[in-house]
């Protein structure tokens, strides 16, 4: 067998080194700039798609009745002890912050004890749910592509495809996800995708008696949600997580996490 001849003549070595340098330079540029750097960013978000639908929770209007929690259970057949939406009560005193959510507030709230009541500086009931983030940690961690964002911004779970590994349950900074004990799949709020597609509002928005929950098109000037953005007094939960939620809060006390 003829021996392999390595062509290491000076010319070709120079060529090789030049290629090496140019290759490294290209790789560095790609790493710094990133392949998605030129994508068209959405409103305050990361996704390349234009988003219209937003959910707004006006904390100042919430009376903590739990109608939304009951309606969500009925509409989506959520198993008992689990919640796609729930209401938390925050009582802020000088000694500390009291937070509770008995049974997700499905039966509303009982009066808080007199000792805490007398020290209360600020007390609010905060509805919580999936924030349908634009930069969703749950989508990033799903190993099988069972959770995804639709073109119109709903973050959904494909129960056919989900393997129930619960990575997404851990990844969600809002605690919005759980493993459905009947289906053994990840479950969470869908913003009532089936209702919105049928031209209705989400069930929780439908039954909210004091307009604490609103859902609509951000770019429709007549919608209730557009007025909130016109006044520019909205907040999101945990902005430090850079999840870019599309669930916005009005009148959120800064103590709420």
């Amino acid at each position: 067998m003829e021996k392999q001849k390595w062509n290491l003549e000076p010319d070709s070595r120079r060529e090789f080194l030049a290629n090496l340098v140019s290759g490294a330079a290209t790789a560095t540029v790609l790493m710094v700039v990133g392949p998605g750097a030129s994508a068209d960013h959405g409103v305050g978000g990361h996704s390349k798609k234009h988003r219209d639908l937003v959910y707004v929770i006006n904390v100042n209007n919430c009376i903590g009745c739990g109608n939304c929690v009951r309606a969500c259970k009925r509409e989506n057949s959520v198993p008992s002890e689990y919640f796609r939406t729930w209401v938390e009560r925050y009582v802020i005193t000088k000694k500390g912050i009291y937070v509770d959510s008995p049974k997700g507030a499905i039966e509303g709230f009982k009066k808080i004890n007199a000792a805490i009541r007398s020290e209360s500086q600020l007390a609010r009931t905060i509805p919580k749910m999936c924030n349908h983030c634009d930069n969703s940690p749950c989508i990033q961690v799903c190993p099988v592509g069972a959770t995804y964002r639709t073109d119109d911004g709903f973050v959904l779970v494909d129960h056919e495809h989900c393997v129930g590994c619960a990575y997404c349950v851990q990844a969600c900074p809002y605690g919005a996800r759980f493993i459905n004990p009947e289906k053994k799949k990840a479950d969470k709020c869908t913003w009532c995708y089936h209702r919105v597609k049928a031209g209705k509002l989400p069930a929780c928005v439908t039954v909210c008696p004091n307009k604490a929950r609103m859902f609509g098109n951000l770019h429709d000037p007549d919608s209730e949600v557009a007025k909130v953005f016109k006044e520019d007094r909205w907040m999101t939960l945990r902005p430090e997580m850079h999840t870019h939620p599309y669930c916005f809060y009005v009148g959120l006390p800064r103590e709420v996490r």
Partner: peptide, 11 residues
């Protein structure tokens, strides 16, 4: 009372 009970959290 679900809605109208007097509580500190009410608007």
């Amino acid at each position: 009372m679900n809605c109208h009970e007097d509580q500190i959290t009410k608007p």
